[in-house]
Amino acid sequence: MRDGPWSRVWHGLGQRRGAMAALGLLGLIVAASLAAPFYAAWVGVDPFVSNVAGTTLRHGQVVDLMQPNDNPLHLGLTPLGPDWRIGEAYGLGSDAQGRDVAARVLYGGRNSLLISAAAAILCMMTATAIGLCAGYFGGWVDIVLSRMLDVLWAIPVYLLAISLSIVTVGHGLRLGPVTIGADNLLIPVIIIALVYIPYAARPLRARALSLSRAEFVMVSRGLGASHWRILTREILPNLADTLVVLAPLLMALCLLAESSLSFLSLGVQAPAASWGTIIQDGEGLLYTRPAVAILPGLMIVATVLSLNVLGDALRDTLDPKRRGRS
């Protein structure tokens, strides 16, 4: 299997320094997010409990988490700012509720990455099924499915996601016998997957359409293969490269959508964190403690950028004709 498709992908990626750097950065972010509980235990903070009256040690001195304000009237309190010592409690400062920002950003990464990856996978599975059926069967199946996608696509993506979130987040979702709790992470996953189905299904449908007219499919049909066999054994494997290229790009889009929903308090619900909710927390502190809003944003940018670089590199590797084109 030395010249199999996967080894070709690996080899192609290995030759691109940008792609390897992106893969490394992505691995680092995932590992750091997975290590969130260890970090919290190590520095001794609980990032899910409000700790407004708390204190912490800094440079050997006990300081309040809520500092007197530096405005002339000393009205209100400002959370402790960062001193940039990672690995100490409150090294990146505290948020408005006295919670450790560094630990929350790490925990937030878990939810952001989990939701966007799950949404991307769910979206691709559904889109593949729709694209396969529409492209292969054609006729009225294609018309019905394509019109449904048109309807979904004609509503601005974020507007649709926000609408669906408002009626489900905080109320729960009942699908027949299955009930999904109000703060279950599956709700944002399903919503984000749903809104991007047209985006993913269109190229897959086009590919399935051209494949279903290919000679090897005709031969297979002539030999008496069933629809199911043709779909799963002949056409699906040939969609693999389209899917591989789509996966990181779709996950990048899902991550941006997730952070937007959470930013509008419509995704991950408090006290749980995602990068978007932390930016929302930091909005009120923007002019006094900007780090709270900026740090999770930087994490989003780093992750989405890595995913996009990876997607580009995969496309160039799998489709040499397009090399250097985009």
Binding site: S260, G282, G297, V301, V309
Partner: peptide, 22 residues
Amino acid sequence: GLLGLSMPVFWLGEVVNLVTQS
């Protein structure tokens, strides 16, 4: 260009506000 594509617009807006308003 890729960096611009990768930024959440609401976050970029907040950074712009931070710089230009404060």
